[in-house]
Write a protein that binds this DNA or RNA. Structure first.
Lengths: 233, 233
DNA sequence: CGAACTGTTGAGAGGCTTCAAGCCTAGTGG
DNA sequence: CCACTAGGCTTGAAGCCTCTCAACAGTTCG
């Protein structure tokens, strides 16, 4: 499980696409590029662990990661998936707390590490950066609040349908409406907050009801409107 | 249900106790005081509603409010309770979204309204203010993430025990270890994410097990360590 | 004093979890 | 090349936790 770090291409290390950095001055952006460290991580690699002290935050330029908390009996609760354009680990950094989640690579990924010092420098010198950062955290907080309500009030069936739709919106579909992210049944369960067996049974039912089609881990959407109704949206 | 607004005393309108404003310059603090509008709200008053556009955020200098989302069939999901020293409505304001929660007074409260313009002014001119604000949002986000894990993985019994302990830590106990916040069974249920009847039954069990004592809405803590164990903390 | 709201208790139903067993697939090593 | 293993996937059965429905007592308030 040794973390295999390769050097990514220049293109993959480019941060100019990130909204967060749009308002930086040329000088600030140059400093950012100077301070950053970009690496390639293979599937299964852990970027940081719950309880660890972080030295910076990460910008994702390629790949997919899952962010989860470890609950009762070591059961994972997936908080969110992140992909290109997302940033992680900034929460614990800003609140000066230990990491409250673990970040694990699901799909080979390229991450750029930005040191805490650089983050502080930007906050101190560029109010538009702070403002943008505030917006990012606030949006994530809304999503968390929404999720609390869902998980507390909806049935497992409704939640699973909702999670599938959420994945559809956040990750690409190919031309046959098939989800381009490969998750185990257990990961789906850890996202919905239920048992693996329940996910399996419900997926089968969804398939019988012609809402989706299944081919191993490939999930193909057949009837999104109906799925919306099942999700009670 | 017309909102009865009285003028609070000067003391109740004082914001100097708020950590958030500690690093303001004298001039900035003066501006803040000039821009603020403080009012007294009676129990049952609604400060803002889910879906509404907000004109500023509020600092609570007295009383208690519940912040909740409206879920399936209008069932409330209480996100948190706030009290003196807390701020509300800043999330939607900063992310420029409509309010995603409703804020309702539980215990007669005094709130100071700070206009959006003033918030922006502070963000633009005082990086320490922005930084502090970032920390507040980030902490709240951690709490939300923790809550997601709890609600997804714990039983109703565990969650109720945890909520009681959370209330104990956030609101005062009198000298007989009795909780100084009066909630209906339904509100407790809406916090735990369960049915009112379940809360009633479980509270009775807790009482039988000598964990707590009940007198109407008064909850008295008899055995906190045991309650901790029940909560699986 | 009724109306409306809150609290309580019981019964029944059902959604989900857990346990257990077996299948399938991919990767490994002989 | 094939047996072997480990991990993921699937299905069935049993049972419990929790919800819903329903009835009723207590409380507050106009």
């Amino acid at each position: 499980m040794r973390s295999t770090i390769k050097r990514p291409t220049d293109e993959e290390a480019d941060l100019s696409g990130f909204q967060l950095f749009k308002k930086l001055t040329d000088q600030e952006f140059a400093q950012l590029n100077f301070d950053k460290t970009c690496s390639l991580y293979k599937k299964g690699n852990i970027i940081y662990r719950e309880g660890s002290r972080l030295t910076g935050f990460y910008c994702i330029t390629r790949g997919i990661l899952k962010i989860f908390k470890t609950g009762i009996d070591g059961k994972e609760q997936i908080i969110r998936f992140v992909k290109k354009g997302d940033i992680i680990a900034y929460r614990s950094l800003l609140s000066q707390e230990l990491a409250c989640t673990t970040a694990k690579v699901i799909d080979e990924a390229v991450l750029c590490h930005i040191p805490y010092q650089t983050l502080l420098y930007l906050i101190q010198n560029n109010w538009q950066f702070s403002h943008h950062m505030l917006q990012i955290v606030c949006r994530e907080l809304r999503e968390a609040n929404d999720y609390i309500t869902d998980i507390a009030q909806k049935t497992v069936r409704e939640r699973l349908a909702e999670v599938l739709l959420l994945l559809k919106d956040n990750f690409n579909l190919d031309n046959t409406n098939t989800l381009q992210i490969s998750l185990t049944r257990e990961e789906l369960a850890n996202m919905v907050g239920t048992a693996t067996e329940s996910v399996i049974r419900l997926l089968s039912e969804f398939k019988q009801d012609k809402l989706i089609d299944l081919q191993g881990r490939k999930i193909k959407f057949l009837d999104v409107p109906k799925l919306n109704r099942v999700a009670n949206l």
